[in-house]
C-alpha cells in the first residue's frame, strides 16, 4: 500500500484547487456570477474519485475554508459543504471510476445540488441568504461542464 504514496498527485491537487479558487472569485457580471458553478466543488469531486488519498478530507475542507474567507461568508460554511461532497464522492469512488464521464455528470449534478443546499441552509441560518431561484441553475451548468473539467484535470496526472 505504501508504494502508492509516492504516486499521489499532491501538487496537481494543490494547483488545480488553487486555479478553481481563482475561477470562483473572478469578477463577473451579476447574471453570470449567480449561475457560475462551484469550480472548487467540481475539482474536489474529481480528486475524490480518482485520487481519494491525495488530499483526503483535509484538502477539500481547507479549500472550502479558503473560499469562505474569500467570499466573506460565515466561516466553515463552504468548508462543510465541500468536505461533505468529497466524503460522498470518496465513498463511491470505486463505482464512479467505472462510469463514463457523461454518466458521472448525473452524480456531479446531485453533489453540486447537495453543496448548494448546504450553503443555502447555512446562509439562511446565519441570516445572510441571497434569495434568488437562479442559483439552483448552477448545479446543472456544473454537471454540463463536468466532462471538460474532468478531462482537463485528468491531464495533470497518470491514473492508477
Amino acid at each position: 500500500m505504501n508504494t502508492f504514496a509516492r504516486r499521489e498527485p499532491r501538487w496537481a491537487v494543490f494547483f488545480s484547487v488553487l486555479l478553481a479558487l481563482i475561477a470562483q472569485v473572478l469578477p463577473l457580471p451579476d447574471w453570470l456570477s449567480v449561475i457560475r458553478p462551484s469550480f472548487v466543488a467540481l475539482v474536489i469531486i474529481y480528486w475524490s474519485i480518482y485520487a481519494p488519498h491525495a488530499g483526503g478530507i483535509f484538502a477539500p475542507w481547507l479549500a472550502g475554508l479558503a473560499l469562505d474567507v474569500f467570499k466573506g461568508d460565515v466561516l466553515a460554511q463552504n468548508a462543510l459543504a465541500v468536505s461533505l461532497v468529497a466524503y460522498v464522492a470518496m465513498s463511491l469512488h470505486q463505482r464512479l471510476r467505472n462510469q463514463t464521464l457523461v454518466q458521472q455528470s448525473l452524480f456531479v449534478f446531485a453533489m453540486l445540488t447537495l453543496n448548494e443546499f448546504v450553503v443555502w441552509g447555512i446562509e439562511g441560518w446565519s441570516g445572510h441568504s441571497v434569495a434568488t431561484p437562479w442559483r439552483w441553475l448552477q448545479p446543472m451548468i456544473g454537471a454540463m461542464l463536468w466532462p471538460f473539467v474532468a478531462l482537463l484535470v485528468g491531464r495533470t496526472h497518470t491514473k492508477v
Binding site: P52, G56, I57, F58, W61, V74, L75, A76, Q77, A79, L80, S83, L84, A86, Y87, M90, S91, I122, S126
Partner: peptide, 21 residues
C-alpha cells in the same frame, strides 16, 4: 476511515460557524 475523518471535520466546521456568527 473517511467517514470518521469527515465526522471530525464536520464537528470542527459547526463549531467554527457557531463562533464566527
Amino acid at each position: 476511515s473517511f467517514g470518521f475523518r469527515f465526522f471530525c471535520y464536520a464537528v470542527v466546521s459547526v463549531v467554527l460557524m457557531f463562533y464566527d456568527r
